[in-house]
C-alpha cells in the first residue's frame, strides 16, 4: 500500500471523526445562549469534513479497496463483513454530506431557531440523526478494517 493510499485512508477516518466531533459540539452546545455563530461554524465544518471524507474515501474505495482488500475479507473468516457491512456502509455513507448540508443551511438561514421549542428540537433531531448515522458508519468501518487479516 503506497503512502498516498495510506494518507487517503487516514484522511478518510480523520475527517469522518472530525465531522462527528463538530456535530457533537453542535448538539452539546445547542442550548447555550448567544452561540448561533458557533452552531453555524460547527455545522459548516461538519459538512466540509464529511464531503472531504467522502471524496478521499471514495477514491480509496474505487482505486484500491476493490482489488486489494475485498478479496482478503471475502477469503477470510468473516466474509459477511464485506457482503453485509461494506455494502450497507457504502450506501448509508452517501447520506452524510447531504444531512450535514441540510443542517448547515437550516442553521445558517433559520430564524428564531432557539426561541421556538418545537423548531429547536427539530434541529437537535436532525443533528442527532446525522451523528447516529455517522457513528454507525464508523462502527462498520472499524469492523471492515478489523476483518483484514493475514
Amino acid at each position: 500500500m503506497s503512502y498516498f493510499l495510506i494518507s487517503l485512508l487516514v484522511s478518510h477516518i480523520f475527517l469522518g471523526t472530525l465531522g462527528i466531533v463538530f456535530l457533537t459540539g453542535y448538539l452539546l452546545y445547542f442550548f447555550r445562549e448567544d452561540n448561533l455563530g458557533f452552531l453555524k461554524r460547527m455545522s459548516f465544518f461538519a459538512f466540509l469534513s464529511f464531503v472531504f471524507s467522502w471524496i478521499v474515501g471514495g477514491y480509496y474505495y474505487v482505486t484500491y479497496y476493490g482489488h486489494a482488500v475485498k478479496p482478503i475479507i471475502l477469503s477470510g473468516e468473516f466474509p459477511w463483513v464485506h457482503k453485509v457491512l461494506m455494502e450497507t456502509k457504502e450506501h448509508i455513507f452517501l447520506f452524510l454530506p447531504f444531512l450535514a448540508f441540510v443542517l448547515f443551511i437550516a442553521t445558517y438561514f433559520g430564524k428564531n431557531i432557539k426561541d421556538d421549542k418545537k423548531l429547536s428540537y427539530s434541529y437537535i433531531g436532525l443533528c442527532f440523526t446525522t451523528v447516529s448515522v455517522a457513528l454507525l458508519v464508523t462502527i462498520m468501518g472499524m469492523a471492515i478494517s478489523g476483518a483484514v487479516g493475514k
Binding site: 500500500m1 485512508l9 477516518i13 482478503i72 477470510g76 468473516f78 472499524m142 478489523g146 483484514v148 487479516g149
Partner: peptide, 19 residues
C-alpha cells in the same frame, strides 16, 4: 484510538485483534 487502529490495519492484525 483510530490512529492505533489504522496502524494495526496496515500491519493486517485482523480479527484476532479487532474482534
Amino acid at each position: 484510538g483510530f490512529g492505533i487502529m489504522v496502524l494495526g490495519r496496515l500491519r493486517m492484525l485482523g480479527p484476532e485483534a479487532y474482534f
